[in-house]
């Protein structure tokens, strides 16, 4: 394929992915809207299970099937439920398709440029979108997170939309500072983190909404989990992302030492990476501080994501920094 064909193919794949994801978004939205069931009182609290008599109700043959008990105890009309589930499944399939298309777009971009596709902000952004989808789909292999789809597809589409409209640049050589294998290590870690941080911000935001509903005595949307479950998921995702982010920052420091002669120089990009790191460290602390575990911790998780986004868009575009290679 010639260079122009490669370029066209890469762009076409990115656009096709956006169209697919838009349909996925609609499917998830339908699923979300049809999930108006209430989560009924799920199970007696542990302390109520004290005698053999009351536990007998809950006996089941294997531990892994216990969730079936849960679904049965929830009310709601079956049609509603079926529509919801079906469209969620369609949403998931479309998300996979969108992911594959976007992967093709990113790879073709790399082939076209003859290097890793991380030379400017357009390329960072489409790869970050890929990272968001990738982390979500990876999690979906291990647990049922279809209900989260809407909140993943929306930020992905926003990222891609911004990429193709505002940030688009033709492929070009890497500026010399980016020619390093640390680029690959540092940026790939950061991109996976961008996916995980986005996922965690989505679950933390949902946890806030749910916990508000729960405080008002409602149980919120059934397709969305309880606030406590959402907070646990947020923690899981961030427990994975935090060491990786630490690693990304350290890799960046090693690279900076190699390129500029100092491993840390409080350049705005470095500063915001540090701020992001500190906020997420605070999140992990909040999880084990009395009075901070619930909504406050969720807010801290969202603040961490905000710092990450400020670093990505704000610093690249508005602040003059050694790291300004946005290409915009």
């Amino acid at each position: 394929m010639s260079a122009t064909q490669l370029a066209a193919a890469s762009n076409a794949a990115v656009y096709a992915s956006m169209v697919t994801l838009t349909f996925a978004m609609v499917a998830f939205a339908i699923s979300f809207a049809s999930g108006r069931r209430r989560v009924a009182v799920l199970a007696p609290a542990p302390q109520e299970i004290d005698s053999a008599g009351s536990t007998a109700l809950l006996i089941k043959s294997t531990v892994s099937t216990q969730s079936t008990v849960l679904t049965k105890s929830a009310g709601g009309t079956p049609t509603d439920d079926q529509t919801g589930r079906r469209s969620a499944n369609i949403g998931m399939s479309l998300t996979w398709l969108g992911f594959v298309l976007l992967l093709a777009g990113v790879v073709l971009r790399g082939v076209w440029a003859g290097r890793v596709p991380w030379g400017n902000m357009y390329e960072f952004s489409i790869t970050a979108a890929l990272g968001i989808l990738g982390v979500f789909l990876l999690v979906s292999l291990r647990r049922d997170v279809r209900w989260l789809g809407l909140f993943i597809v929306i930020p992905t589409l926003l990222t891609l939309g911004l990429a193709v409209t505002v940030l688009y640049t033709e492929a070009a050589q890497l500026v010399p500072a980016l020619k390093s294998y640390w680029l690959i290590i540092h940026v790939s870690a950061a991109i996976i983190c961008s996916g995980a941080f986005t996922l965690a911000a989505a679950t933390a935001g949902l946890a806030l909404v749910q916990s508000r509903a729960e405080r008002r005595g409602k149980s919120g949307r059934a397709r969305v989990r309880t606030a406590e479950k959402l907070r646990t998921l947020t923690y899981r995702v961030l427990a994975f992302a935090f060491p990786l982010w630490t690693f990304a920052v350290v890799a960046g420091a090693i690279w900076a030492e190699n390129a500029w002669g100092r491993y840390w120089g409080w350049d705005p990009k470095e500063t915001w990476a540090f701020i992001t790191w500190v906020i997420y460290a605070a999140y992990l602390h909040a999880r084990s501080t009395v009075g901070w575990r619930g909504d406050r911790a969720s807010w801290v998780a969202i603040a961490g994501w905000a710092a990450f986004i400020i670093n990505y868009f704000g610093v690249n575009i508005f602040i003059n920094s050694l790291h300004s290679y946005s290409g915009v």
């Binding site: 409080w266 540090f274 906020i279 602390h285």
Partner: peptide, 25 residues
């Protein structure tokens, strides 16, 4: 723990002006 948490927030906030104002270093 609570103090550690507050100090971590303070550290994050105190770092911000350095990315907005030019730095001598």
């Amino acid at each position: 723990m609570k103090t550690a948490l507050i100090l971590l927030f303070l550290l994050a906030i105190a770092s911000v002006p350095g990315s907005i104002f030019p730095q001598r270093g």
